[in-house]
Amino acid sequence: MTESALDPTELPSLEYRLDSYERLLRSFGAAGYEFTPFDPAEPPAEGEILLRHDVDLSIDRALAMAERERALGIQSTYCFLLSAPAYDLTRPQNVRVLQRISKLGHEIALHFDTHTYWAADDEPSAESIAAKVTEELAVLGRLVGEEPSTASFHIPPSWVLDRAFEAFTNTYAPPFFSEIDYRSDSSQKWVAAEPFPDSLAETLQLLVHPGLWHADHRPMAEIVGDLRQQAHRQVDGYFDPLG
Protein backbone atom coordinates (compact mmCIF):
# COMPACT_ATOMS: atom_id res chain seq x y z
CA MET A 1 0.00 0.00 0.00
CA THR A 2 1.25 3.47 -0.87
CA GLU A 3 2.45 5.50 2.09
CA SER A 4 0.48 8.61 3.00
CA ALA A 5 1.72 11.94 1.67
CA LEU A 6 3.65 14.39 3.80
CA ASP A 7 4.88 17.89 3.15
CA PRO A 8 8.04 17.51 0.97
CA THR A 9 10.17 19.18 3.65
CA GLU A 10 9.00 16.58 6.18
CA LEU A 11 10.17 13.61 4.12
CA PRO A 12 13.12 11.76 5.60
CA SER A 13 15.85 10.23 3.46
CA LEU A 14 14.40 8.02 0.74
CA GLU A 15 15.07 4.55 -0.52
CA TYR A 16 15.10 4.57 -4.30
CA ARG A 17 11.89 2.59 -4.69
CA LEU A 18 9.03 3.51 -7.00
CA ASP A 19 6.68 3.59 -4.01
CA SER A 20 8.96 6.15 -2.36
CA TYR A 21 9.02 8.18 -5.56
CA GLU A 22 5.23 8.12 -5.69
CA ARG A 23 5.15 9.30 -2.10
CA LEU A 24 7.38 12.21 -3.06
CA LEU A 25 5.10 13.18 -5.94
CA ARG A 26 2.02 12.93 -3.72
CA SER A 27 3.70 15.17 -1.17
CA PHE A 28 4.06 17.91 -3.77
CA GLY A 29 0.42 17.55 -4.71
CA ALA A 30 -0.61 17.77 -1.05
CA ALA A 31 1.48 20.93 -0.73
CA GLY A 32 -0.42 22.53 -3.61
CA TYR A 33 2.17 22.23 -6.37
CA GLU A 34 1.35 21.44 -9.99
CA PHE A 35 3.58 20.02 -12.72
CA THR A 36 4.19 21.95 -15.92
CA PRO A 37 6.17 21.39 -19.16
CA PHE A 38 9.20 23.32 -20.38
CA ASP A 39 7.92 26.29 -22.35
CA PRO A 40 10.26 29.21 -23.14
CA ALA A 41 7.25 31.38 -23.91
CA GLU A 42 5.73 30.71 -20.49
CA PRO A 43 8.26 30.14 -17.69
CA PRO A 44 7.02 28.28 -14.61
CA ALA A 45 4.85 30.31 -12.26
CA GLU A 46 4.51 30.18 -8.50
CA GLY A 47 3.52 26.72 -7.31
CA GLU A 48 4.69 24.95 -10.47
CA ILE A 49 7.32 22.22 -10.86
CA LEU A 50 9.24 21.27 -13.98
CA LEU A 51 9.68 17.50 -13.63
CA ARG A 52 12.46 16.18 -15.85
CA HIS A 53 13.98 12.74 -16.34
CA ASP A 54 17.40 12.11 -17.87
CA VAL A 55 17.31 8.53 -19.13
CA ASP A 56 20.98 7.58 -18.70
CA LEU A 57 20.73 3.89 -17.77
CA SER A 58 17.47 2.16 -18.66
CA ILE A 59 14.60 2.84 -21.01
CA ASP A 60 12.54 0.14 -19.26
CA ARG A 61 12.87 1.95 -15.92
CA ALA A 62 11.75 5.10 -17.69
CA LEU A 63 8.56 3.36 -18.81
CA ALA A 64 7.86 2.07 -15.30
CA MET A 65 8.22 5.60 -13.93
CA ALA A 66 6.13 7.10 -16.73
CA GLU A 67 3.28 4.68 -16.01
CA ARG A 68 3.39 5.49 -12.30
CA GLU A 69 3.21 9.21 -13.07
CA ARG A 70 0.33 8.73 -15.50
CA ALA A 71 -1.62 6.92 -12.78
CA LEU A 72 -1.19 10.04 -10.63
CA GLY A 73 -2.26 12.38 -13.44
CA ILE A 74 1.25 13.85 -13.73
CA GLN A 75 2.99 14.77 -16.97
CA SER A 76 6.76 15.08 -17.10
CA THR A 77 9.62 15.39 -19.58
CA TYR A 78 11.70 12.33 -20.55
CA CYS A 79 15.10 13.05 -22.10
CA PHE A 80 16.66 10.21 -24.11
CA LEU A 81 20.23 9.68 -25.29
CA LEU A 82 20.90 8.69 -28.89
CA SER A 83 24.44 7.70 -27.93
CA ALA A 84 23.78 5.75 -24.73
CA PRO A 85 25.96 2.64 -24.29
CA ALA A 86 23.38 1.28 -21.83
CA TYR A 87 20.55 1.10 -24.36
CA ASP A 88 20.03 1.40 -28.11
CA LEU A 89 17.14 3.75 -28.70
CA THR A 90 16.80 2.64 -32.34
CA ARG A 91 15.99 -1.01 -31.53
CA PRO A 92 12.36 -1.77 -32.43
CA GLN A 93 11.38 -2.76 -28.88
CA ASN A 94 12.87 0.46 -27.53
CA VAL A 95 11.14 2.56 -30.18
CA ARG A 96 7.87 1.04 -29.00
CA VAL A 97 8.69 1.97 -25.40
CA LEU A 98 9.55 5.50 -26.51
CA GLN A 99 6.24 5.81 -28.32
CA ARG A 100 4.39 4.33 -25.34
CA ILE A 101 5.82 6.97 -23.01
CA SER A 102 4.72 9.65 -25.47
CA LYS A 103 1.20 8.18 -25.63
CA LEU A 104 1.03 8.32 -21.84
CA GLY A 105 1.07 12.08 -22.26
CA HIS A 106 4.69 12.81 -21.35
CA GLU A 107 6.97 15.12 -23.29
CA ILE A 108 9.75 13.38 -25.21
CA ALA A 109 13.01 15.32 -25.24
CA LEU A 110 16.66 14.83 -26.12
CA HIS A 111 19.43 14.08 -23.65
CA PHE A 112 22.39 15.47 -25.55
CA ASP A 113 25.95 14.35 -24.82
CA THR A 114 28.35 17.18 -25.65
CA HIS A 115 31.25 14.87 -24.78
CA THR A 116 30.55 12.86 -27.94
CA TYR A 117 31.55 15.89 -30.01
CA TRP A 118 33.77 18.14 -27.89
CA ALA A 119 36.10 18.04 -24.90
CA ALA A 120 34.72 19.65 -21.75
CA ASP A 121 37.32 22.44 -21.91
CA ASP A 122 36.89 23.00 -25.66
CA GLU A 123 33.91 25.34 -25.89
CA PRO A 124 32.28 25.31 -29.34
CA SER A 125 30.32 28.14 -30.86
CA ALA A 126 26.62 28.51 -30.17
CA GLU A 127 26.00 27.74 -33.83
CA SER A 128 27.93 24.45 -33.59
CA ILE A 129 26.02 23.38 -30.49
CA ALA A 130 22.68 24.24 -32.05
CA ALA A 131 23.54 22.39 -35.27
CA LYS A 132 24.42 19.14 -33.50
CA VAL A 133 21.47 19.32 -31.11
CA THR A 134 18.98 19.97 -33.90
CA GLU A 135 20.43 17.04 -35.89
CA GLU A 136 19.82 14.71 -32.97
CA LEU A 137 16.38 16.20 -32.30
CA ALA A 138 15.44 15.35 -35.89
CA VAL A 139 16.58 11.74 -35.44
CA LEU A 140 14.64 11.43 -32.19
CA GLY A 141 11.62 12.93 -33.90
CA ARG A 142 11.67 10.25 -36.59
CA LEU A 143 11.62 7.58 -33.89
CA VAL A 144 8.75 9.04 -31.87
CA GLY A 145 6.76 10.45 -34.78
CA GLU A 146 6.94 14.09 -33.72
CA GLU A 147 10.10 16.18 -33.53
CA PRO A 148 10.79 17.40 -29.99
CA SER A 149 12.07 20.86 -29.19
CA THR A 150 13.59 20.39 -25.72
CA ALA A 151 17.07 19.16 -24.82
CA SER A 152 18.93 18.50 -21.59
CA PHE A 153 22.70 18.12 -21.49
CA HIS A 154 24.41 14.98 -20.20
CA ILE A 155 26.96 15.77 -17.47
CA PRO A 156 26.73 19.39 -18.62
CA PRO A 157 29.91 21.43 -19.11
CA SER A 158 29.82 24.96 -17.76
CA TRP A 159 29.35 26.44 -21.23
CA VAL A 160 25.79 25.10 -21.60
CA LEU A 161 24.59 26.21 -18.17
CA ASP A 162 22.49 29.37 -17.87
CA ARG A 163 22.39 29.65 -21.64
CA ALA A 164 19.43 29.97 -23.99
CA PHE A 165 19.44 28.82 -27.61
CA GLU A 166 17.05 29.98 -30.31
CA ALA A 167 16.99 26.60 -32.06
CA PHE A 168 15.80 24.55 -29.08
CA THR A 169 14.72 24.78 -25.46
CA ASN A 170 17.62 24.20 -23.07
CA THR A 171 16.51 22.78 -19.71
CA TYR A 172 19.47 24.68 -18.20
CA ALA A 173 18.38 28.07 -19.57
CA PRO A 174 18.02 30.72 -16.84
CA PRO A 175 14.19 30.61 -16.49
CA PHE A 176 14.41 26.88 -15.77
CA PHE A 177 17.65 26.76 -13.81
CA SER A 178 19.27 29.74 -12.07
CA GLU A 179 16.11 31.83 -11.79
CA ILE A 180 14.25 29.08 -9.89
CA ASP A 181 15.22 26.34 -7.46
CA TYR A 182 16.88 23.27 -8.94
CA ARG A 183 17.06 19.84 -7.25
CA SER A 184 18.35 16.48 -8.45
CA ASP A 185 18.45 12.87 -7.19
CA SER A 186 21.91 12.32 -8.72
CA SER A 187 24.02 9.45 -7.36
CA GLN A 188 21.14 8.39 -5.07
CA LYS A 189 22.08 11.18 -2.67
CA TRP A 190 18.63 11.15 -1.10
CA VAL A 191 19.48 7.86 0.60
CA ALA A 192 21.75 9.69 3.02
CA ALA A 193 20.06 13.09 3.11
CA GLU A 194 16.61 14.62 3.19
CA PRO A 195 15.49 15.53 -0.34
CA PHE A 196 14.22 18.95 0.76
CA PRO A 197 15.63 19.87 4.16
CA ASP A 198 14.67 23.54 3.89
CA SER A 199 11.56 25.40 2.86
CA LEU A 200 10.57 24.89 -0.77
CA ALA A 201 10.94 27.61 -3.37
CA GLU A 202 7.90 28.97 -5.17
CA THR A 203 9.04 27.33 -8.43
CA LEU A 204 11.27 24.34 -8.95
CA GLN A 205 12.94 22.14 -11.54
CA LEU A 206 13.21 18.58 -10.28
CA LEU A 207 15.55 16.14 -12.05
CA VAL A 208 14.94 12.45 -11.38
CA HIS A 209 16.89 9.63 -13.08
CA PRO A 210 14.58 6.64 -13.74
CA GLY A 211 17.43 4.13 -13.88
CA LEU A 212 18.07 4.62 -10.15
CA TRP A 213 14.52 3.70 -9.08
CA HIS A 214 13.24 0.10 -8.89
CA ALA A 215 10.46 -1.85 -7.22
CA ASP A 216 12.93 -2.56 -4.39
CA HIS A 217 15.87 -0.37 -3.49
CA ARG A 218 19.09 -1.27 -5.31
CA PRO A 219 22.38 0.51 -4.51
CA MET A 220 23.76 2.51 -7.41
CA ALA A 221 26.98 0.47 -7.50
CA GLU A 222 24.91 -2.67 -8.00
CA ILE A 223 22.83 -1.10 -10.76
CA VAL A 224 25.89 0.15 -12.64
CA GLY A 225 27.74 -3.14 -12.09
CA ASP A 226 24.93 -5.16 -13.62
CA LEU A 227 24.79 -2.83 -16.62
CA ARG A 228 28.54 -3.13 -17.12
CA GLN A 229 28.29 -6.93 -17.14
CA GLN A 230 25.38 -6.80 -19.55
CA ALA A 231 27.35 -4.54 -21.90
CA HIS A 232 30.37 -6.85 -21.73
CA ARG A 233 28.21 -9.84 -22.64
CA GLN A 234 26.73 -8.00 -25.61
CA VAL A 235 30.15 -6.98 -26.90
CA ASP A 236 31.55 -10.50 -26.44
CA GLY A 237 28.50 -12.00 -28.13
CA TYR A 238 29.13 -9.81 -31.15
CA PHE A 239 32.88 -10.31 -31.48
CA ASP A 240 33.31 -13.94 -30.40
CA PRO A 241 31.83 -15.45 -33.61
CA LEU A 242 34.15 -13.22 -35.64
CA GLY A 243 37.24 -14.78 -34.07
Rank of each mutant, 00 (worst) to 15 (best):
E34L: 04
E34F: 00
F35L: 02
F35H: 04
T36I: 09
T36W: 03
P37F: 07
P37D: 12
P37W: 10
F38I: 12
P40M: 06
P40L: 09
E42Q: 04
E46D: 14
E46H: 13
G47F: 07
L51S: 10
R52P: 07
R52S: 14
V55W: 06
V55A: 10
D56T: 02
D56K: 04
L57M: 11
L57I: 14
L57E: 10
S58M: 05
I59Q: 13
I59K: 13
D60W: 15
D60H: 15
D60S: 14
R61L: 03
L63R: 14
M65S: 11
R68S: 13
E69W: 07
R70Q: 11
A71C: 12
A71L: 15
A71D: 15
L72A: 06
I74T: 11
I74F: 07
Q75L: 00
S76K: 02
S76C: 01
Y78I: 04
C79H: 07
C79W: 01
C79I: 06
C79T: 05
F80N: 07
L81H: 01
A84Y: 07
P85W: 02
A86Y: 15
T90Q: 14
R91L: 15
R91G: 14
R91W: 15
R91D: 15
P92W: 13
Q93L: 15
Q93H: 15
N94T: 12
V97R: 15
I101G: 08
I101F: 06
K103S: 14
K103C: 12
H106D: 07
I108E: 05
A109R: 14
L110P: 01
F112M: 02
T114H: 14
T114M: 11
H115L: 10
W118Q: 00
A119I: 06
A120H: 09
D122E: 09
D122V: 06
E123L: 05
P124G: 02
A126D: 14
A126S: 11
A126F: 06
E127G: 04
E127T: 04
S128L: 06
I129N: 05
I129E: 02
A130D: 01
A131I: 00
A131W: 09
V133D: 01
T134C: 09
T134H: 09
T134D: 05
L137A: 01
L137E: 02
L137N: 02
A138C: 08
A138N: 12
A138M: 08
V139A: 03
R142E: 12
L143A: 11
G145M: 13
G145W: 06
G145P: 11
E147M: 10
P148Q: 13
P148D: 12
S149W: 10
S149L: 13
F153Q: 03
F153Y: 10
P157C: 00
P157D: 00
S158V: 02
L161N: 02
L161C: 03
D162S: 03
D162T: 00
D162G: 01
R163Q: 04
R163E: 00
E166T: 02
E166D: 04
E166Q: 04
A167E: 11
A167S: 14
A167M: 10
F168G: 07
T169K: 04
T169Q: 06
N170E: 03
Y172C: 00
P175A: 05
F176V: 10
F176G: 09
F176Q: 08
F177Q: 03
F177L: 08
F177W: 07
